[in-house]
Structures are given as structure tokens and as C-alpha cells.
């Protein structure tokens, strides 16, 4: 199978090359703003360099990828927001099948078979896709290949009338270690009565060398924390070594975002909260009593 791959993020693009190699030869599309990192691309058959298009131009990308795709059976994109935005548009232009956020892909009896999470993490759908297919690949599932120099071929940019005009772009404030890369995460929920009380979570995270994330109500409704630290299916999906969930009930949208965590601890006053079913260790206690003691004891160990 011939595979065309593209991501706005060069790091994710390298993962796509690896995913694509499960199916066949991979051509990676690289836009003008990514040209500086072209020598990091290993394992692809070729790099298609488009010097006339910036990755910020979504309409241009739909046009370019749809045009190039006629030579390929599979188009792989990343599962970040802009990647997912492209999937449906490119697929429909091609009359292709589509799937997002797939965790595995294989060919069985000439059929493309993918797996992806559905029902808020309660099920995995195994889907048979007709060809051509446009797929976005779940982040972090494939390691970038380390060897194999691709050839480079230039492709020309499409000329189309743009109907969406980007008038402003504002960098979001950086939140330190991104949640999806953190080894230790303390996740806070509605059990905290006011914003100032979150310091109990920050103190715990500090002594563990971890970062603090939040459930949707804390991040989006109460606006106590930045949206970037919202854990869940429409927020960030995390995979730390240790996750301590404090004062969160464990709604399905949140649960789906923490499934890949290695060890999960839950602290909640309500022994019937669903979070305890999603945890390895449960502490049925008032976080206001438990956290200060836990933090103090951890400090003693780490200090001595």
C-alpha cells in the first residue's frame, strides 16, 4: 500500500511515518515552515516538499493533500486539532472512508482494519475501511523510525481562492511541562471548594516533581485553571507513571483521558464515586484533611 502522511507538528509527522510503515511505503508531505527539519525525517520513502505552502493554511492543505492523494491508497494525518479538522474534509473530497484517533492499523485479507476508542472510552471499535482511506493516528502510539534516508521531491502549491482568512494568531501561555508528557500528574476536581485551595494540589505536585491538571468543570466552567490542563476526551489525554486524582468523581469524559496512566490513586469523600473503579488505590477521605498529611510525609522522605 502507498501511504501519504502529513502533520502540522513535525514530531507527530515522524510518528506518522512509523505508523505508515505498517502498511507500506510512506511519502511525507513537508510544508515551507517545516523545511528546516527535513533532515530529521527517517524511514520514509520520500519527502514531498511544498515550498509554496505554509502549514497554517488549512484550505490550501485540503486542496494539496486531496490532489496528491490520487496516487495513494491511504492518507495519514495526526490527531491534533488541525489534523482532525483535515480528515473529514480530505476524505469527503476523495470519496474515501475515514477514521480518527486510531491506535492500530493493519491489513487483513486486503482490507484495512483499524482500532479506535469510542463511547467515551467504554469500547474499542474495530473498523473495516474501504480504500482509499483517510485516517488520523493517535498521538504517542508509534515511535519515529531511526534509519532510512528519504529522497526529496518538490511539489507545487495549489492555487485556489481562500474563503477563510487568518487575521490573528496568539500564542497560548506555556504551562511548563505539558500534561501529556508529565511522569507524575495531580488532577483536581470539583471537590476543591475554592480556587485558593488548589495550592494543596500544587504543593503535592511540587514535592513529587509533577504537574497539576484539572477536570472539565474546574478548567472550563469555573475557569480556575487554563484550558490547556483540562484532562479528558476533548482535552488532553495523559499517560503518566503516577496519577493522583483528588476530589473528582470520575465522569466518563475524564475517565477516557486517564486510561493510559500506569498507577492511579483516587482521593474522594464519596466511596461510591466512579473514580474508585478507575483507580488502583482509593482513599475515601476529605482531601482537606488527607492532602496536607500526604504532602508532609512525602516531604520528609524526599528531604531525608
Amino acid at each position: 500500500m502507498k501511504v501519504l502522511a502529513f502533520s502540522h507538528s513535525m514530531d507527530l509527522a515522524l510518528e506518522l511515518v512509523s505508523a505508515g510503515r505498517e502498511l507500506g511505503d510512506v511519502s511525507l508531505l513537508v510544508t515551507s515552515d517545516q523545511e528546516g527539519r527535513i533532515n530529521e525525517v527517517k524511514g520514509a520513502k520520500e519527502v514531498l516538499l511544498c515550498k509554496g505552502l505554509d502549514s497554517g493554511d488549512q484550505e490550501g492543505l485540503v486542496e494539496l493533500i486531496s490532489g496528491l492523494a490520487s496516487d495513494y491508497e491511504v492518507v495519514l494525518l495526526a490527531s491534533d486539532r488541525r489534523g482532525r479538522e483535515l480528515v473529514g474534509q480530505v476524505a469527503h473530497r476523495l470519496g474515501a472512508s475515514s477514521a480518527v484517533d486510531v491506535s492500530s492499523l493493519s491489513v487483513e485479507d486486503g482490507k484495512l482494519v483499524v482500532e479506535r476508542m469510542t463511547f467515551g472510552g467504554k469500547a474499542i471499535a474495530v473498523e473495516e475501511m474501504s480504500l482509499p482511506a483517510v485516517i488520523s493516528v493517535q498521538k504517542g502510539k508509534f515511535k519515529p523510525p531511526e534509519e532510512g534516508e528519504p529522497s526529496v521531491r518538490e511539489v507545487s502549491a495549489p492555487s485556489i481562492e481562500r474563503r477563510v482568512e487568518v487575521i490573528e494568531r496568539k500564542e497560548k501561555p506555556k504551562v511548563g511541562v505539558p500534561l501529556d508528557k508529565a511522569e507524575i500528574v495531580v488532577a483536581v476536581g470539583r471537590g476543591f471548594r475554592k480556587k485558593e485551595d488548589l495550592k494543596l494540589a500544587y504543593e503535592l505536585a511540587d514535592v513529587l516533581g509533577g504537574v497539576v491538571g484539572a477536570t472539565r468543570p474546574v478548567a472550563a466552567d469555573l475557569k480556575w485553571m487554563e484550558e490547556e490542563v483540562w484532562i479528558g476526551i476533548s482535552g488532553v489525554r495523559i499517560a503518566p507513571k503516577l496519577l493522583i486524582v483528588v476530589g473528582a468523581s470520575g465522569q466518563q469524559q475524564f475517565a477516557a483521558g486517564i486510561m493510559d496512566s500506569k498507577v492511579v490513586v483516587a482521593v474522594n469523600t464519596d466511596s461510591k464515586a466512579p473514580i474508585f473503579e478507575q483507580a488502583d488505590y482509593g482513599v475515601v477521605m476529605d482531601l482537606y484533611e488527607f492532602l496536607p498529611v500526604l504532602t508532609k510525609k512525602l516531604k520528609e522522605i524526599k528531604g531525608g
Partner: peptide, 9 residues
């Protein structure tokens, strides 16, 4: 264009 072959837990 796509069929669900199976839903797994």
C-alpha cells in the same frame, strides 16, 4: 465506506 466489525470492551 466503513463498517464496524466489532466493539470490544
Amino acid at each position: 465506506k466503513l463498517t464496524i466489525r466489532e466493539l470490544k470492551v
